[in-house]
Design a protein around this nucleic acid. Sequence first.
DNA 1: ATTAGGG
DNA 2: CCCTAAT
Length: 677
Amino acid sequence: METVVAVEEGGRNKEESASAIVIARPDSSKRIADPVVYKLARVVGDGIYIPATDDEVMKAEDLIDHKSSLHFVLGNSQAAVCTSNDDTFVPEFTPIDCELEALYIGFRILFFFGSTFMLMILLNGKKIIADILKFEDLNTQGEISDAVVDTTVDLGKLNPRFEVLFCLIIMQASAHLEVQVILYLFRIYKLQEVTQSESTPVDGDQSGDRKQADPLPGSAASEPSSSTIYASWKPDFSKLKGEICLDNLSVKDLHATFKATFGRETSVKDKQWLKRRISMGLSNSCDVSITTFNIENNQLQKKDKLEDCSNEDENRDKDSFNGLEEQNVSGDHKVLVGQSQTVQMEDHFSGNSKSVQSDAPKRHIAFEDDNQGNKRVRKPTRRYIEEVSESDSREYTGRPVSSVRSSGNVPRTRIRPIYNIQPIRRPLVTRQDSLGGSGVEIPYVSRIRRGRPRENFMALMKFQPYGMGMTTGLVKKAHDAHDPESDIDIENHEVKDTPATGWPLQPLIKEPGENEQYSEQSADLNNNSDGHVDSYADVDSDENILTVPTAKGGMRRKHHRPWTLSEVVKLVEGVSRYGAGRWSEIKRIAFATCSHRTSVDLKDKWRNLLRASFAQLPAEKGAQNSKKHSSIPIPAPILLRVRELAEMQSQVSPDLKAVKFDGHSGRNVNDMKSGFL
DNA sequence: ATTAGGG
DNA sequence: CCCTAAT
């Protein structure tokens, strides 16, 4: 697969500089249709595009590179070609994940630049989701909104035909009080009419005022190619004609409807689930009553609007951007400050959106109308989705115990190709509902456990650990040894996690080797998907649970769970905010959703990061990927930041310092704090 | 209960 | 990561 990225570069003015990065992902391979074009734009002040500096581009590149396997190649002048020959990149993500990826990339970029940000998603210019991922004003430290982390992005519900605009607003509170607002715009176009690559609005749109720098030239170039590719993705609403009562549909029909609604296949066979999904998808709401849902209204409405939108859509990028800028710049941030609740945010936005509409009234109407019937439809929060799918998944558990054994061996998470369903599609990322033994697969994103049931589950099962660590002699044969701790370790929610149907608490039959294999596999998946998903909400998959002998002879679980990049980012950000040492604080805030990762873990990780950052500095650029460490390489920018923070907080140990000042004095940007020396 | 450090 | 000591 190939990815084209256009990076626009222009002015050098620091304050006025913004970077717009367009990441188009034209898909040459037929097997994968990627309808998504990412556009990242950095806007300053009144919504002017500001060209990125070389430095910025490189940094962004770094950030992006690590997770997405995209490689930037600076082309002539302003265009940068980004190619990715990493095939593995493709199959792993559904289109939805692509979007998540974009978000993730954004997140990392944001992180790099600094601190907190708010995420807003605009669909055809209409704000459908607004969330604060993290917000904290230095000034209001203390009453930090605990908030957040409820990322609420169910991209699956976004209609592929719409262009999705992600907007990240960063409240960059640099070392001190000045809070500057930077807008990062992620624009994701789902190219609907492939045939009409015509006005695919990939190029930078500008505010109506247009006073700003010219749109991104590079983007325009990349755009056409990408647009031609994604025909297969548009949802087929023709299938949704007429009045349809979901209740009467067969699974097959539901599948068809599902596809028509979301433009993609589903392998889920559960009718309830399907109905709910479809209902939600059509109504763009999670509050729809399934049983009474009648597609007709929504459908028709939606369809019409879609047409309208898509038509208008094509030619009007500027407006949307403009609108966006207005919204954001118009002082939203003011309001946002201190607002921690998602709902509040959204309210605010919706109010705001209206004002914006003046710009491009028609364009925004669609969803508004859709939502008008109901009070205000908001996207289901991630948590909600999880809950839903969790309960859904439980519904699957109709199947008896026969699968007990397999559930023990099957990876809890894995990539399941679905070519058999639709060759063109990407494989769905799914996870086995092994816990329930149902073997039912559900979209990966949709079922995220927050607790850490696995180990307890195993405890319940009197799980036999041998075979897991076939490598080490450490692994004690634990035939009848079950961790004493585990028994008391069982928490309510974890028990709850056991399928309602309940399944026999029998020892699992383990096949040596298999387990390890699988866990590696799933670990991989985690690393890949994690980055995208995890950054918005922590994905808790409990893998790699090993048991190791304890001094006392007991067995103790050892979860060696590699830190994901996003976790690292969160940690670093947390440290930057609360300072190293306030681990419990950081834990509570930044890792609220991370049941694992105790404050001690954070501390340890930080220690490691510190070490790494100073160790790696001398080499500077060189070895970034060179290491074959089993763990993921930590992007240089992050390490840099770690070091900065460390220096800032005077927590650089002498020996490390020696290393540091070895070559040259480090370039701490904001070390006003480090008044020592 | 949290944190710092050593293993 | 785990464990412990110190707070």
